Simulated assay, not measured.
Amino acid sequence: MQDRALLGTRKGLFELQRCKGNTKGSGNHSWQIAASSFVGDPVTMMLSDPRDGSLYVALNLGHFGVKLHRRDAGASDWTEIAVPAYPPQPPGDPAKPDVAWKLSLIWALAAGGFDEAGVLWAGTLPGGLFRSNDRGDSWQLVEALWNVPGRSEWFGGGYDTPGIHSICVDPRDSRHVLVGISCGGAWVTRDGGASWAPSAAGMRASYMPPEREDDQNIQDPHRIVQCGVAPDVLWCQHHNGIWRSTDGGANWLRQGQNNTVSDFGFAVAVHPHDPECAWFVPAQADQKRIPIDAALSVSRTRDGGQSFESLRSGLPQTHCYDLIYRHGLAVDDDGQHLMMGSTSGGLWSSDDGGDSWHTVSTTLPPIYAVQFG
């Protein structure tokens, strides 16, 4: 169980500390804000590196560009480090002539394997994946993915350009990495990024013409997560439903079609020790993007997607318009503690797997990302 949680918000990074002496069900006194950094600046993503304890924070400063900072374990000061940079754009990019080769957002950060000291991955808008071998002091565009012929068909899902928001590094093999792209499907490498193949077979995009609904290259996986003890099991909250893979992303099966709660949403979290258990936050599709009936709930499956429970205890059930972004739901490494942050600055925690929720705050800035660690 982690004693720290991180919030990336529209107005800075907030570090929460679990209050000492907590007992199960201690409510909104379970967490308190212990520190804040970059107050007033949008924090789009953060990463607590489990290998050396470093903390990375990505900022989007608009006119002043994207920034990236690192704080070493035990240190109090932040160091500004390099940001991913695209190479010069050739005249008339044949793949996506309408997309500028310019970094506009860091949407995902992931640590490499424990056998790859210093390796980091970054997913960006406009759809580029970057790798660092030196803890972010320099970055290289993964050209093999950037140059796949299929990139010409990627398009924006919410943003004007495609973006990589999910990076799953196989804990058994650091060279095996799967990424999720809106809207570009899922792609996988088994050689550390030297070559890539589409990995979204089975997903279906009902927003496309019928003859193209099954096309792997235009799917919109809103978020993909991987089970820590069973890395072949991945869960996906897609624009058009919930999907699960039990073969490392080679094939996906839709889940919850008989679920009475909407299967549209953005966030998903998987139990780190139980691949059958996952959580989702349903919303009203498509343009509305608010909780169903203005009542916030979390959907949980504990049988691999055969059935889902609607968890509402402690969550606002009237006049609630909080949306949970892709990275706004997190589960601790014990599989029991969860935290969820919303676009309206609401923050809730659970210490019983989501059966009941406690309000931590309703006055935070809009929350982009939540992590334990």
Score class of each variant (00 low, 15 high):
6 L>C: 00
11 K>V: 00
13 L>H: 01
14 F>E: 10
21 G>T: 10
21 G>K: 11
23 T>A: 06
33 I>K: 08
42 P>G: 00
42 P>Y: 05
58 A>Q: 04
59 L>Q: 09
59 L>I: 07
61 L>G: 03
64 F>I: 04
64 F>S: 14
87 P>H: 00
87 P>M: 02
87 P>N: 02
100 A>E: 14
104 S>M: 08
106 I>M: 12
121 W>Y: 15
129 L>A: 07
155 F>V: 02
156 G>W: 10
172 R>L: 14
177 V>P: 03
187 W>G: 00
192 G>S: 09
195 S>N: 12
196 W>A: 06
203 M>T: 09
210 P>C: 01
223 R>D: 00
224 I>K: 12
227 C>Q: 02
227 C>P: 01
236 C>R: 02
236 C>W: 08
240 N>W: 14
244 R>D: 08
244 R>N: 05
249 G>S: 12
249 G>D: 13
250 A>E: 15
251 N>I: 02
255 Q>K: 15
269 A>Q: 07
293 D>L: 10
298 V>L: 08
304 G>M: 07
304 G>C: 08
308 F>Y: 15
309 E>I: 00
309 E>R: 02
314 G>C: 07
315 L>Q: 03
339 M>Y: 06
354 G>R: 08
356 S>N: 12
357 W>V: 06
359 T>F: 01
361 S>Y: 07
363 T>C: 06
369 A>N: 09
373 G>S: 06
